[in-house]
Nucleic acid binder design. Structure first.
Length: 112
DNA sequence: AGTTTGACTTGTT
DNA sequence: TAACAAGCCAAAC
């Protein structure tokens, strides 16, 4: 059985450059609505395992940067800017950048 | 095996 | 609009 963490990681890797997803959205996609907090743990672990893991494409439900360290927030904003995502005052417009899996490409795990 | 912990979310003040 | 509180659930201890 595939773990929650693995499913979350797969979905994050599926997010196209220039788009973002929220913690809660990932939890739901991975099959556990409400496990948004746990998603952060997955990002931390995956980032250690894979330096190129696109953790920066994950933001909170308000479109804000939620990194646990102040300095990391700056990094995330910079990485997003490099992909064309404009971050203003630590936040971005979800109505512009939020990725909706169905409209763009097949999910890594065609749910169900 | 029970407890603690969060890079979250949502509702209430 | 901003601050606070409670709920949430998989992982790590």
């Amino acid at each position: 059985m595939e773990t929650f963490s693995e499913r979350v990681a797969a979905w994050v890797r599926a997010v196209p450059s220039g788009r973002v997803v929220t913690y809660g959205q990932l939890a739901t996609l991975a099959g556990s609505p409400g496990a948004a907090r746990q998603v952060s743990g997955v990002l931390r672990r995956e980032t250690l395992r894979d330096a190129w893991f696109p953790w920066h494409r994950v933001v909170n439900a308000q479109g804000g940067i939620s990194t646990y360290k102040v300095g990391e927030g700056e990094l995330q904003a910079a990485l997003l800017a490099r992909e064309g995502v404009m971050v203003v005052d630590g936040a971005l417009r979800l109505e512009v950048y939020l990725w909706r899996p169905a409209e763009d490409g097949p999910p890594p795990k065609p749910n169900r």
